[in-house]
Simulated assay, not measured.
Amino acid sequence: MSSSLRFIPNALCILRMLLVVPVAWLLANHEFRLTLWLFAFAAATDALDGFLAKRCGWTTELGKILDPLADKILLVGVFLTLAIMGLVPLWLAITAIGRDVIITAGAITYNALFGEIDGHPTWISKVNTLCQIVFVLLVVAAHAVGHVPRNVVIGLGALVFVTTVISGIDYVLTYSRKAVHVSRRRRGLPV
């Protein structure tokens, strides 16, 4: 593939960010079928940008920032809207949004105090993002078509909660250890 097309993964990330407003607007206006299709399209751009970046070697430093940021913006926007509408429990939305706020604040702090962060998501973070996307799709599908068993939605909501908490703790512990390591190295202490 041509290297002149290496902008495509980043463009897909930006498109995903731009889709947050229409997705939230459609959702807030109870346009569940359109929301379902648009959110599914946005989720597909996540898979496609990752595939293209890896398969074609189109990974960029900007993409390492844009991809997780686009995921966070999309999922925070949708979880917030769903919680305001009363379609997901407030505690679950707070957990999902809180994790992203903690990770983002931690990344900014780490970058300011200790240097560049490794932009690769952990496996539990990938699982969490997938669970959140599928959960949102099921919640919206339940209102769009009505054929989603309630127990499935509740079970997946519980899985979202567990993976969100584990992923958040994993990021905090990982970057706390890295911060201690960098700090000790800077002071000339054994690491």
Rank of each mutant, 00 (worst) to 15 (best):
M1T: 11
S3I: 08
S3W: 08
S4W: 15
F7P: 08
P9L: 05
L12A: 04
L12T: 04
M17Q: 01
M17K: 00
M17T: 01
L19K: 06
L19P: 05
V21W: 06
A24V: 07
L26A: 07
L27S: 00
N29C: 09
F32I: 05
F32L: 07
F32K: 07
W37I: 13
W37E: 13
A42E: 02
T45I: 03
D46A: 01
A47Y: 15
A47W: 14
L52H: 01
L52E: 01
A53G: 03
A53N: 01
C56T: 07
K64P: 11
I73T: 04
L74V: 07
L75G: 02
G77A: 00
V78E: 00
M85H: 13
V88R: 04
W91Q: 08
L92I: 09
A93S: 05
A93H: 01
I94C: 12
I97Y: 04
G98W: 04
G98S: 03
R99A: 03
A105D: 08
A105L: 13
L113K: 14
F114G: 09
G115L: 03
I117Q: 12
P121Y: 01
W123C: 12
I124V: 13
S125H: 05
K126W: 03
K126V: 02
K126A: 00
N128T: 11
T129A: 08
L130P: 08
L130D: 09
C131Y: 13
C131F: 13
Q132V: 04
Q132G: 07
Q132D: 06
V139H: 03
A144P: 03
A144R: 06
V145F: 12
G146K: 02
P149G: 05
P149E: 04
R150M: 15
N151G: 12
L156H: 01
L159W: 06
V160M: 04
F161D: 12
T163G: 05
T164A: 10
V165G: 03
G168D: 06
D170M: 08
V172N: 05
T174A: 14
S176D: 08
R177A: 11
V180Q: 11
V180A: 15
R185K: 10
R185L: 10
G188K: 06
G188E: 04
V191E: 13
